[in-house]
Computed example of a mutant assay.
Amino acid sequence: MPARVPEAGPVALGDVVRELTSRADPRRLRRDVEILADGPRSRTRAPGAMLRAEAHVAAELAAAGRPAGRQPFDVRWRPGSTDRRGHRALPLRFRLHPRLTGANLLAEPPAGVRRPTVVVGAHLDTVDAAPGADDNASGVAALLEVARLLGGMPNPPDVTFMVFDMEELGLIGSRFAAQWLRRNREVTGMICLESVGYFTAEAGSQRMPPGFGTAFPRVATAVRSAGLRGDFTLLVHRRSTRAAAALWHGAARATEPALPCVTLCDPRPQGPLGALAGLAVPALAHLDRSDHAAFWNTGIPALMLTDTANFRNPHYHRPTDTPDTLDYRRLTAVAVATAATVTAMIPGVPPR
């Protein structure tokens, strides 16, 4: 994901962050989460709620000047996972799906489809019986705020917004989307917003999966030295998105107050070999637990932003994952840092 660092360096990026912050509104994000997380939403288990959530997202994107269309898919015999509720960290609760019919939402740049684009994406569905405020109404709310912030710029960057279906069934919607984009669009990279709204300063609140300290000693040391506090955003990237990750980290530092960020570089290659390595090494498999992995496996550079879900949030995949548990000030900072990053990633959009 090539990134254009602003000519004036960190000061210019900070100016962008400050200008976006002046227009961002945590109350909008809270309203989005409250509307989306009024109950479970699923194409298979709660289709009515899913349609209502879709309608809200489409209306907000249209109001931001990014009208969205439905991208239906009908797939057969797809390996995936179950969307039954459960708090255990299971990267792949295997299930073979004979047939799944769903739809992503796609909002393309106003400039059309001929220029390179960056995709900002988040999944809309939840597991059974969970309202999914953090997983993943928080990600969708951040995406909507990014669309609003970019829509207020005089020269909006060529960003494509995608809201994915059936992530909880095994990245079904994003796998379809990544393959379609690979064939039909020039995508320079993708940013995935996955469970980005739960933060706590309580010491010992942050956990790590087994083997994580051995696989990623630098990251584990940083988290432990901060008292295992779950007050940061984890940014997972690969070598292809190192520059974009540095931009996001810099933008997060420029928010007020600064949003703590821990970066983790996944050492695997793009494509199928990286996916196979994840199946073989459990610590790596945890890095594949959202829609960015579908883009990695298709060869499209991607990065993921997350609060680490079940390794921090006690409400993960439970009925208690409700809007009142989220930190909307920090969630707004995630949206601002993401919007600032994409303005610097795409050539021809000067920092303001």
Rank of each mutant, 00 (worst) to 15 (best):
E145P: 12
P109G: 06
F94Y: 12
R99S: 05
V140K: 02
A64R: 09
A147Y: 14
P116M: 04
A107E: 10
G102D: 06
N104Q: 14
A177I: 07
L96A: 13
A122G: 07
V127G: 12
A64E: 12
A133K: 01
D74Y: 10
L150C: 05
Q71F: 08
A62M: 13
P157S: 10
L124K: 04
S138C: 01
H97I: 04
A64F: 06
V163S: 08
G80F: 01
F176G: 02
G151I: 15
R93C: 01
D158I: 10
P72K: 09
D135Q: 00
A103P: 02
D134A: 07
P79N: 14
D134E: 07
L171T: 09
V75M: 09
G121S: 13
V159A: 13
A63I: 08
R88L: 00
E108I: 10
T117G: 03
R148G: 00
F176Y: 11
A142E: 05
G80D: 14
L61R: 09
A147S: 10
V146I: 09
S138A: 05
R99L: 14
L106W: 05
G112H: 10
V119N: 06
R84N: 12
D74N: 14
A133G: 04
R78P: 06
L92S: 02
A111L: 06
R78A: 05
R95S: 08
R175E: 13
L105V: 10
P110Y: 07
D128W: 15
L96H: 08
D128H: 12
V119M: 05
V163L: 02
D74I: 10
V113G: 03
L90K: 00
R95F: 10
V140S: 07
D158R: 09
G151A: 01
M153Q: 14
V118Y: 10
V119Y: 11
G86W: 00
A137H: 06
G112S: 04
A147W: 11
R88W: 00
P67S: 15
T126W: 00
A129D: 14
G152D: 13
R115T: 09
L171D: 07
V75A: 11
L169K: 11
R93F: 12
P154L: 11
G139T: 07
G86R: 00
R114Q: 14
R84V: 00
F176D: 15
V118W: 12
S174A: 09
N136E: 15
A68C: 09
F73D: 13
T160D: 10
P110C: 01
D135K: 00
R85I: 04
P116Y: 13
